[in-house]
């Protein structure tokens, strides 16, 4: 059982090619049971491909996966009954009411506790009496969320669940996810932007061009994220402050990143006429060393901003961008069939 190994989902060099295009390149990760795991990445990063592999909707080119302790290739309906899945591009058509559709799905994947559908629908604000084809995108998404949660599956795999939802329902969704994790359910949730899930995710994998470029806890991400720092010191001069900064190797990041924000290239300036020194710049990593260094001076003013996670994620997206991603896009065009076969990520 997965809980014994601590991993609800575990992949090993899981890869998927569509024709010549590499959609997922040797994905290796573990998702702890009972945790909320975020998969973040731009379009075409391989998020949807990875999630669809876990559901056995598509099959890996190489590598393997264990979902709740079972290979999805052989787990079959029994395994999928224990998973709640929200497709990335949920299109619902047909002259069927939301309730009838959910009842049909419950018959396949049940059991669904009595009243569970109504409770969920009420919480997300979904009218179950309307025909699904008449629902707006946001309401279809709500229906998708209800069908994923209704049978209280051990694992929830949610591909861009918040797309189309208004901010209030997004918050409700995050509460649902938190409650699920509190009950011991494992949640994997993908998004374009970290901010949508940062408040609930325990760990995140940041993906780009089919690879995980960063795998860490949100806390680690926050700690290592760039912060804008600004301090004003009095009773000292630029030379002294610069010497102190340069004496501490750990703060070299500050001096290298301070360019442009202040009067001199090292990020240290002496405001005219005040006799004090101003440090400003972007600090990557721990703030502890900086605070200790500043303690040796008289600090007139100190501002350390909230780390900007989105900015550091975007930086990860951009890393060596011109190489492999362009190759990917070229492959997209070369393989005509692929546009049909490859899951579109929005």
């Amino acid at each position: 059982m997965a809980a014994h190994t601590g991993a609800a989902v575990s992949t090993s060099a899981l890869s998927k090619r569509f024709g010549r295009a590499v959609a997922l390149d040797a994905l290796t990760l573990d998702v702890a049971a009972g945790s909320i795991f975020g998969v973040i990445g731009p379009n075409g990063a391989g998020k949807t491909t990875a999630l669809r592999l876990l559901l056995d909707i598509i099959r890996p080119t190489s590598g393997s996966a264990l979902v709740l302790g079972v290979d999805p290739r052989i787990g079959g309906p029994e395994l999928r009954r224990r998973i709640g899945y929200l497709p990335g591009e949920l299109r619902l058509e047909g002259r069927i009411t939301g309730r009838n559709l959910l009842d049909q799905l419950a018959r396949i994947s049940g059991p669904v506790a009595p009243g569970a559908i109504d409770t969920l629908a009420e919480r997300v604000g979904l009218d179950l009496t309307r025909q699904v084809r008449t629902l707006s995108k946001g309401n279809k998404q709500k229906l998708g969320i209800v069908q994923a949660f209704m049978h209280t599956p051990d694992l929830l795999v949610l591909d861009e669940p918040t797309s189309g939802l208004d901010p209030l329902v997004q918050q409700t969704f995050l509460v649902l996810v938190t409650e699920a994790a509190a009950r011991g359910q494992t949640v994997i949730v993908s998004s374009h932007v970290l901010s949508e899930i940062e408040q609930v995710a325990d760990r995140v994998a940041i993906m780009r061009a089919g690879r995980v470029v960063r795998l860490s806890s949100v806390q680690e991400l926050r700690q290592s994220a760039a912060r804008h720092v600004r301090a004003t010191l009095s009773g000292t001069d630029v030379a002294t402050v610069r010497a102190a900064l340069e004496a501490d190797g750990a703060l070299s990041a500050l001096s290298t990143l301070s360019a442009g924000l202040s009067a001199d290239s090292a990020g240290i300036s002496e405001p005219l006429g005040t006799g004090s020194v101003c440090i400003s710049g972007t600090l990557n990593g721990s703030i502890d060393r900086l605070v200790k260094l500043l303690a040796g001076f008289t600090v007139v003013d100190l501002r350390i901003e909230e780390p900007d996670l989105e900015e550091s994620v975007l930086a990860l997206y951009r890393d060596d961008e011109p190489g492999s991603t362009r190759e990917h896009h070229r492959d997209d065009h070369r393989d005509g069939r692929r546009t049909k076969r490859h899951p579109h990520e929005s």
Binding site: L55, I57, P77, R80, Y85, E89, L105
Partner: peptide, 17 residues
């Protein structure tokens, strides 16, 4: 083509079924 197959096959049903 409508995307409905993906949803149904993610539920507790096998492909041959």
């Amino acid at each position: 083509e409508s995307g409905a197959l993906e949803l149904i096959l993610a539920h507790g049903v096998s492909r041959h079924q």
